[in-house]
Write a protein that binds this DNA or RNA. Structure first.
Lengths: 229, 229
DNA sequence: TAATGTGAAACACTTCACAGCG
DNA sequence: CGCTGTGAAGTGTTTCACATTA
């Protein structure tokens, strides 16, 4: 009955559950109730139970969930019981920071190919991985069995890079460029967009007192504010 | 009637609309229909119209939306017609990358204070901003009228830093640490979590052929997979 | 006439509440 | 007897479809 219609929102919560369970495991804990786990993560116990129910019966009534067992289950559902090779495109400030980030390694990912267009970047290396010319993508990505790409190029080049990745066989993209990329149905994209995140937070702040600065800034845009009504 | 109940999900889409409209404006376009705008962004025309209807009547029947006017409207709704000072906490790899990122400036934010605990980091500087001791937060943040904080410290320190920020008067937090932070109701948090994003993408990939590597990796965790049924 | 703004319907997700199990 | 798993109810979000208006 659990078949195949797990909402994406549930899938996006699984890594958080996994990470939390692994931390608990590291603390020597053996089991946890949906109540406890929810409190740690900031979601309701009911949601925890509903989420887990999508992919099986992991709990024991009266007892809760076995932490190691549940974590392993989630890890398997997410197919994280292996290491995924990832291709990074872009080796500017951002690309380099991503290439040097050590957090992926311990979480089932390895940046095993880096591509750039800038001649200055090509030939440099990060973590022992040499930066290749972007034109090598179509050859290297299939060869290495890479199915995940990270876009870390300027917004204006993001769509083009997305297409090159897709043409190379990539099926999942993590997009750091501040641009919406359009890909075929069978390709999944997640956006990393700190600027948008900040820009949606200010909505909730009072603009009132303490202007941080005397500059009345409409940013790059010289346009004038003007609304009707 | 538009009063005050705009869903957060709508607020989170506004920066994307804004960015897209500004790009169109830069291209010299003057007006756009919900149909067109939706196609560019990848949402339905109905959603665009519904979203905008929450904060006013911005369109003209038969014509569409005036790009400059609509962008200005969104900018005002999001309170982005000013520059917000932001405090960055953490000056390791990640913190430094954020400090040097030039994308915030042109989008209404300025990292105007940087804090770290590591003695090596204190006194360094980025973009002309000196790194201060974290203990100075409670004094400096109110003084500078800062209400937005960015957390870029290891997961284990994230909660502590969040509390220091909140105690200093911060009301909005952008959290790059891979940890859920708990804050009072009146404080808003957005997470930047590339690892979780990648980990939720693999769910949709076939694990089948082409194992990228011979390592059968259960990562850091030595635990054995074992499920019931 | 072309495209908005919006009731109403449809769909999606979350929470309630409790039977049932270990 | 405490806690899961899950129908059913409750909310929230998206889409439909069309009257309305520039």
């Amino acid at each position: 009955m659990s078949a195949n219609e797990i909402p994406d929102i549930v899938i996006r919560r699984l890594p958080i559950y996994l990470r939390t369970l692994r931390r608990m495991q590291g603390l020597g804990l053996e089991s946890v109730s949906s109540e406890d786990l929810g409190a740690h993560i900031g979601v309701t116990a009911a949601q925890i139970r509903r989420d887990f129910s999508y992919f099986g019966r992991f709990g024991k009534q009266g007892k809760g969930y076995d932490i190691a067992n549940l974590a392993d289950g989630i890890q398997r559902v997410l197919k994280l019981d292996r290491t995924w090779n990832v291709a990074l495109v872009g080796f500017g400030q951002l690309g380099r920071a991503i290439a040097h980030y050590r957090g992926f390694e311990s979480n089932s990912f390895r940046i095993s190919a880096i591509f750039a267009r800038n001649r200055e970047h090509i030939g440099q290396e990060a973590n022992g991985v040499a930066v290749m010319d972007a034109s090598a993508m179509q050859e290297v990505i299939p060869e290495m069995g890479i199915r995940i790409g990270i876009i870390a190029v300027p917004a204006d080049n993001a769509q083009e890079v997305a297409e090159q990745l897709v043409d190379s066989g990539v099926l999942a993209i993590l997009n750091y460029a501040p641009a919406i990329i359009h890909v075929p149905e069978h390709v999944r994209v997640r956006e990393i967009d700190p600027t948008s995140a900040l820009q949606s937070l200010t909505f909730y702040l009072e603009s009132g007192d303490q202007p941080p600065d005397s500059v009345f800034d409409t940013s790059l845009l010289p346009s004038m504010a003007q609304t009707r009504d």
